[in-house]
Amino acid sequence: MTALALPTGVDLHLYILGTLLAGAGVTVVCTAGALVLSVAAAALLAGLQSFGGVAARVCVFAYVEFFRAIPVLALLFILYFGLATIGLKMSPMPAAILGLGLNGAAYCTEIFRAGILAVPSGQSEAARAIGMRRWQVMRWIVLPQAVRIVLPALTNLAINILKNTSVASAVAAPEIMFLARNLVNETYLSPQIYLSVCLVYLLISVPMMKLAGWLETRVGVTAAKR
């Protein structure tokens, strides 16, 4: 990078824009991957919590409390730098997605648990009264309604994961923050570049915040009517 001369003028703007957009793409991929991992793991954990015995519930509690109490940065360092010393080398992106996913799963488990509890008990009573078994009640009556209820919270979780991807820059994941830092080292245009980065984040997060708000009003209406 230092061997090549820095482009100037319009080319410079295009270079910066291109780099930031590439970074944004990686950021989105990272967020999506971590979100999928979070939801999948949380579904498993929430299931264990609801249907498992005392031992299962204790394990889920330990997992949730631990991964909510440690900073994401520490977790990423452990996964990327720490595990390498015992032979488990990971490249930056998998480490980032794994770390963000493990962290996200902890929050998501709580979201799922709250969602299931939010379905009025009368629903499962009515379902039981027509002879449904517990798994049928879950499958046909409780879970479909719980999913609607948790959508706003899940959207907010997605926004948080998006913001957390910035921390992955510390383990050299090629997302927008990392690329921005390199750009600043090259061009010294730090205020412009960091503001642009903020703008890019806002372009993704503000629509998501609006979506969460809209989902909340829709869920709120149906919940209030009961």
Binding site: Q123, A126, A129, I130, G131, M132, I141, Q145, R148, T222
Partner: peptide, 29 residues
């Protein structure tokens, strides 16, 4: 659950399944 098939219950607060249509509420059982 099998025993409950023989017994029908109507609740004070109806407890209809909001995510199902009227017909689906009746046929899901």
């Amino acid at each position: 659950a099998a025993a409950r098939v023989e017994i029908g219950m109507v609740f004070q607060r109806f407890n209809l399944f909001p995510h199902l249509s009227v017909l689906e509420n009746v046929t899901i059982g």
